[in-house]
Amino acid sequence: MLRYLILRTLIFTGCLAATWLLGLRDREEQLLAVVIAAVASLVISAFVLKPFRQQASADIASRVDRRVERKREQGGDEVAEDAEVARPDARRAAPDDGSSDFR
């Protein structure tokens, strides 16, 4: 992901330098140069950086899958613990002799 971000930034910087070389140097034209560079770098990176974007997406998807799997494994233990707590236990059952503070 970091590699993709760096390459994308380099493409934008190159496009911005190209607009400067094409003559958009005045202070009034700076915003136009940035917009043109942003659009050009978007189009260029959509085609040139496609393999890097797919690799970054696959890496993120695999991390998410691993987290989900760990949650399932941990969740299985929690379900068993909940069943253990919900099971009636003779040792914990208090006799109902009316001496309880709660009514």
Rank of each mutant, 00 (worst) to 15 (best):
L16N: 12
L16M: 14
L16R: 12
A17F: 14
A17K: 12
A17T: 14
A17E: 11
A17V: 14
A17G: 13
A18S: 07
A18L: 15
A18Y: 02
A18P: 11
A18E: 03
A18T: 12
T19F: 13
T19K: 02
W20N: 09
W20A: 14
W20D: 04
W20F: 13
W20V: 14
L21P: 05
L21Y: 10
L21K: 08
L22A: 10
L22H: 12
L22I: 14
G23S: 14
G23V: 09
G23W: 10
G23R: 02
L24S: 06
L24N: 03
L24V: 02
L24Q: 02
R25Y: 05
R25N: 13
D26A: 10
D26G: 11
R27Q: 06
R27A: 07
E28G: 04
E28S: 12
E28I: 13
E29A: 11
E29I: 02
Q30C: 03
Q30W: 13
Q30M: 11
Q30Y: 08
L31M: 13
L31F: 14
L31N: 06
L32V: 13
L32W: 03
L32T: 12
A33L: 12
A33H: 11
A33G: 08
V34P: 04
V34S: 07
V35D: 05
V35N: 02
V35S: 08
V35G: 02
I36K: 05
I36L: 15
I36Y: 09
I36S: 03
I36W: 08
A37K: 00
A38W: 15
A38C: 08
V39G: 00
V39N: 04
S41A: 15
S41P: 04
S41N: 12
L42F: 15
L42C: 12
L42E: 07
V43P: 06
V43S: 11
V43Q: 03
V43K: 08
I44R: 07
I44C: 11
S45K: 05
S45H: 10
A46Q: 13
A46Y: 14
F47D: 00
F47N: 03
F47S: 00
F47R: 12
F47T: 01
V48A: 00
V48M: 01
L49F: 01
L49M: 03
K50W: 01
K50L: 15
K50E: 04
P51F: 07
F52I: 04
F52A: 07
F52W: 10
F52M: 13
R53E: 00
R53L: 12
R53I: 01
R53A: 13
Q54S: 05
Q54N: 08
Q55C: 01
Q55M: 02
Q55T: 00
Q55A: 05
Q55D: 00
A56N: 05
S57P: 00
S57M: 12
S57D: 06
S57L: 06
S57E: 04
A58H: 03
D59W: 02
D59N: 09
D59R: 03
I60R: 08
I60Y: 05
I60H: 02
A61I: 04
A61V: 03
A61C: 01
A61N: 06
A61Q: 02
A61S: 06
S62M: 06
S62N: 08
R63M: 06
R63A: 11
R63F: 13
R63D: 10
V64F: 05
